[in-house]
């Protein structure tokens, strides 16, 4: 399965979600490859500062060849996760075209909501090429019971793509884990953040079938 985590807006939570989902899959014993398609190379930096052995492989490939090259690589892995590039349309289209499932993280903020339209357009165009392709929004960095967090779901519904009920919440542990070259799955396996990530994964598996 190839999962692309994309949003044309930077800071939407792509890398955090991609890394933690990869860790959750690896914890299930799956062979996971994480493709860092972001020229900022955050996922590669994360891998570089990590002290322990990597629970999954991380490769940087911020070029529009993902749709061409990844299908052949997918035979060697249970899952390939693409951490998408913001802004670069060519790389984003390539990542989306490569994917079986496209996951679009959106923060409950006006700026994220506005920017998500462009990403949705790309995903809908791609569905024209790949009829079996699935896609979904995931709300990222939800802030408690704020009004915005409640409203973002209604607003996103207008785009007519599925919205996962699982979401990530604004929690210090995500940043702490990232800074330490770890994931929330390892930092606090029984903590609420790890539960959030596993819930997203479980829903993605449902979407995939």
């Amino acid at each position: 399965m190839i999962l692309a985590v994309v949003n044309q807006k930077g800071g939407a939570g792509k890398t955090t979600i991609a890394l933690n989902l990869a860790a959750a899959m690896a914890a299930q014993g799956k062979r996971v490859l994480l493709i860092d398609a972001d020229p900022q190379q955050t996922a590669q930096d994360w891998a570089a500062i990590r002290q322990e052995p990597l629970p999954f492989q991380v490769i940087g490939l911020a070029k529009p060849v993902l749709h061409r090259d990844l299908p052949a690589m997918s035979a060697d892995y249970d899952s390939i996760i693409i951490d998408g590039a913001p802004r670069s349309y060519e790389v984003a289209r390539s990542a989306i075209a490569a994917a079986d499932i496209v996951l679009i993280p959106v923060q409950p903020s006006g700026a994220d909501f506005w920017a998500s339209r462009e990403t949705v357009n790309l995903v809908k165009e791609s569905h024209g090429f790949k009829e079996t392709q699935k896609s979904a929004f995931v709300v990222s960095r939800r802030i408690g019971r704020s009004v915005l967090s409640r409203e973002i779901g209604d607003a996103l519904a207008e785009f007519a793509l599925p919205i996962l009920t699982a979401s990530t919440t604004q929690r210090v542990i995500y940043a702490d884990a990232m800074t330490a070259g770890r994931t929330v799955i390892e930092q606090q396996p029984d903590g609420p953040a790890a539960d959030e990530v596993r819930a997203i994964l479980a829903e993605l598996e449902e979407v995939a079938t």
Binding site: H67, Y89, R93, E118
Partner: peptide, 11 residues
């Protein structure tokens, strides 16, 4: 798909 990846009209 290749054409779309390379040239898809960016909004």
């Amino acid at each position: 798909v290749q054409g779309w990846v390379e040239e898809g009209a960016a909004p």
